[in-house]
Amino acid sequence: MFQPLRLNALLTAVVAALVVLGLPLLGVGSYVLHVMILIMIFAIFAVAYNLVTGYLGLKTFGHHAFFGLGAYGSALISIHLGIGAWASLWIGAALAAAFGLFIGLPILRIKSMAHVAVVTLAFAEIVRLSCSNLKGLTRGELGLWGIPAFQALHLPLVGEVVFSPANKIGYYYLAALLLGMTLLATAVILRSKIGLAILAIRDGEDAAESLGVNLTRIKLGVFAVSAFMVGVAGAFYAHYVGILTPSAAIGADLMILVIAMVLVGGLGTFAGPLVGAVLLTSSAESLRFLDQYRLLVYGGLIVLIVLFAPRGLASLRLPGRRVPERPA
């Protein structure tokens, strides 16, 4: 993470960005755009999860709570307060970040990974149960619908950009923009002094503290930032699909999918979550006919990856690649 960007990495990033930005211009179908949008939503989630779990080394299993909080927060605010989706997205994400700080506090005191796992899981379960029990507000498992889409934009040079199920290009570029911002924020954090502190905490908490790293501030801050990013992904998802149910937006399946993505791509690597999101989402879509086996495959995949490629596919040694960093 601390070497200057090498030419290879820079070229890969530029090519990937060009492909992503250029794809809609090739006149691909609405379905391809939909899959790409899903990939980008999951990529934001996976990148944010990786920041906490892979880099900071805080192994949480409850990040789907923040996805649900961002989604329900933004949807309810835009429905009831009449605030447009452009603003409610950030309010929803801020709500997720606030809850991230809240649940970050008890986690701070715990050194045992098992306790952290249990507490974060229980927290997410509380959020899910609350959303399905508060039927007056969220309509529970019946589903919250009528979530407003993003208002059309008038951009110079481009003209009017509409956001509708029929025309996904607007959503596509918005998702790409949000993913780009997430990646940029992550890179800036990791390449700053704070990034050094984050890795120091992962590799040796006591040693880091003895060198003057403020554990409380860094851990809480990173947890909140990560929750914010996941909240953004959730809020965008809410306004994109237009309907939310607790089991779809806060279900444990979501977390398992993201954990699988991060593990497949490589925990604690920058490109890992992206690779994982692309591979798992696109393979899930192309294997639609195997729908009932999908979760079986994900479960098995997690086991196999952990057993045989614990550093993930992104860190397999390829010719001309530097040996990957040690994962936590």
């Binding site: 990974m113 398992i256 979760l295 079986l296 479960g299 098995g300 997690i302 952990v306 936590a328």
Partner: peptide, 14 residues
């Protein structure tokens, strides 16, 4: 530690 939690989670889903 993490590998075991993740693997048993995968087993659970499977």
């Amino acid at each position: 530690l993490f590998a075991c939690i993740a693997a048993t989670l995968g087993l659970s889903i499977a």
